[in-house]
């Protein structure tokens, strides 16, 4: 039987998954970055920066907006937990993750990727890496800017700097885990966006609110376990509820998020490798 041999100038047959992924990443990054999705990302990521700017402006005019023991680091912590971890990261991951392959199918450009001498799994991995770079390159600067604006209000940059380091790691880890999960969702379901939003705003909130072990079936449970900031406890009920639940340890968080990432990516790669994509004309 005649074997497939590379032509002069071409790479070896069966380019490795990682090398091929980097090439798909290179091709996809610019396309992903300059898409309308990034405008949405920038709007979401820019919100805490705008809030921080407004706060600073009001304080500059001596408007008493920070009362009741609230300091800049506390506001930053609240924003990070309440907005970045619970909203921005999962929502951006849904929008990017579910579209990794779906966008190429919808635009009917998947053909160009699937008729190249690269494993299909590398298309998933390369586009996933592009999403990670794209999402983090927008959100990380926003978190840093927000911190720079808020932390000095009745606080000190130095004191909250170690927490910022942890926060930035959490952003990356959050995108890694949620992205892998929604990459899998995007390859399995026909309406992945709807499913992803239901997961984030429905299932995760429900699982975290209910007593018992259900919360372990959410990504937020493990991600929130890493957040170093204090959370407000407005009512005694909140405090008692917090006393009954417990935050997972760092090791448990790392294992949980790692498992979600690996399983998500494996499922996505497997589905894409075996699926036939019939493009509509």
């Amino acid at each position: 039987m005649e074997q497939a041999t590379p032509r002069p100038g071409a790479g070896p047959a069966g380019t490795g998954v990682l090398a091929a992924s980097m090439r798909v990443f290179d091709l996809s990054l610019g396309r992903m970055l300059w898409s309308r999705r990034t405008i949405f990302t920038a709007l979401v990521a820019g919100l805490p920066v705008v809030v921080a700017l407004v706060l600073r402006t009001l304080l500059a005019f001596e408007v008493p907006v920070m009362q009741g023991g609230v300091t800049g680091p506390v506001v930053f912590g609240l924003m990070f937990w309440g907005f970045v971890v619970r909203f921005a990261i999962p929502v951006l991951a849904v929008f990017y993750g579910t579209a990794l392959i779906a966008d190429e199918v919808e635009d009917r450009t998947i053909t160009y990727l699937f008729t190249r001498p690269i494993p299909r799994a590398s298309v998933v991995l390369g586009k996933y890496l592009a999403y990670l770079v794209c999402a983090t390159s927008v959100l990380l600067p926003a978190v840093v800017l927000t911190w720079l604006l808020l932390a000095p209000i009745d606080g000190a940059l130095a004191a909250s700097f170690p927490d910022l380091g942890v926060d930035l790691v959490i952003v990356v880890v959050g995108f890694v885990a949620y992205g892998a999960l929604f990459a899998a969702v995007g390859t399995i379901f026909d309406r992945p966006l709807l499913f992803g939003l239901l997961f984030v705003f429905g299932w995760e909130n429900l699982a975290l609110a209910l007593p018992g072990q259900l919360r372990r079936a959410s990504v937020a449970h493990y991600l929130q376990g890493l957040v170093p900031h204090a959370m407000p406890a407005d009512t005694p009920l909140d405090v008692l509820q917090r006393a009954m639940t417990g935050a997972p340890g760092v090791l448990e968080c790392a294992l949980g998020l790692g498992l979600v990432t690996v399983v998500g990516l494996l499922i996505a790669a497997r589905v894409v490798s075996n699926r036939e994509y019939v493009l509509e004309h």
């Binding site: 610019g30 390159s137 600067p141 840093v144 911190w147 720079l148 130095a158």
Partner: peptide, 27 residues
């Protein structure tokens, strides 16, 4: 990688690096 993509990523990394350096210096 297209030049504008490279510029964007560089800018983003610059903001993060500037923030981290400020924090490190403060620390």
């Amino acid at each position: 990688m297209a030049p504008n993509t490279r510029r964007f990523l560089f800018g983003s990394a610059l903001v993060v690096a500037a923030g981290l350096c400020t924090g490190l210096v403060a620390y």
